[in-house]
Amino acid sequence: MFFQQMINGLTIGSTYALVAIGFSMVFGVLELTNFANGSFYILGAYLTLTFMNAMRGNFYVAFAISIIGTGLVGALMDRLTLRPMRKKGAPGIAAVIATIGFSEIINNFALVFFGTETKPFPNIFKVGKIRLGGAIITYLQIIIFVVALVLMLVLSLMVYKTKVGKAMRATAQNTSAARLMGINVNHIITLTFFIGTLLAAVAGTLVAMYVESVSVGLASAISMKTFAAAVLGGVGSLPGAMVGGILLGLVETIVAGYISSGYRDAIAFIILILVLIFRPAGLFGQKTQAKV
């Protein structure tokens, strides 16, 4: 029983980690708290479902179109709203409000076009399961975990080993210095948004398949869990986001299994508040000093 809970927690935690990485990357380059992550997550799931129906069940093509499409919406959000605000030098909190507004727009569009009810989502990887001790591991769980792991590796390689990644880290450290070094800061930021949003869409589709349904109501809970995972690991740190996401998934599943499933979503918030009070820098983050 406990082992089974751990496996379920690991599965769901690895999807939180994916969204949290995207969130952390955006936070890294912009110091922006993106409240629209949960909306991109459900948008990704809905788009995959729609394209799958349109293409008679060709999951892979639908999935590819959906995540790229959602990524473009994220890049568009940056291009249309955040970049003009950066140009004007608007205060950071205005950008946060813009992401809240954007999230509200996406959620309501989803309500209009996909309906208010919970939609069933086909699980195309229902091909079998492995028994390991007393626990059952489905192939889908393995796929989710592997996909999450591979994406994390690819992203880490990209951020820490490639030239684009170096530009991202430079932008995160000091935007104006990066610009002086000839980095096109705006392109880097838009690209970061694209990747972050794409990750949310991947996670959204995988989880929708895992729980075999999708609904708009998930959006705000996912946003909060992303914050919790990122803050727990240390905002702006990629390994932190991974560990934070997986820890959150584990704790949440165990609490839901042993205490009460009604308060499942509350766990993330309680972790979030506790971390912010006692260790605001998170597990892997560095303490930052306010600049005067």
Partner: peptide, 17 residues
Amino acid sequence: GNYLAIVTMAFGEITRL
């Protein structure tokens, strides 16, 4: 600023739950 927005949002969700 940013963290306060997140925490108050979390508080709203906890209250609802």
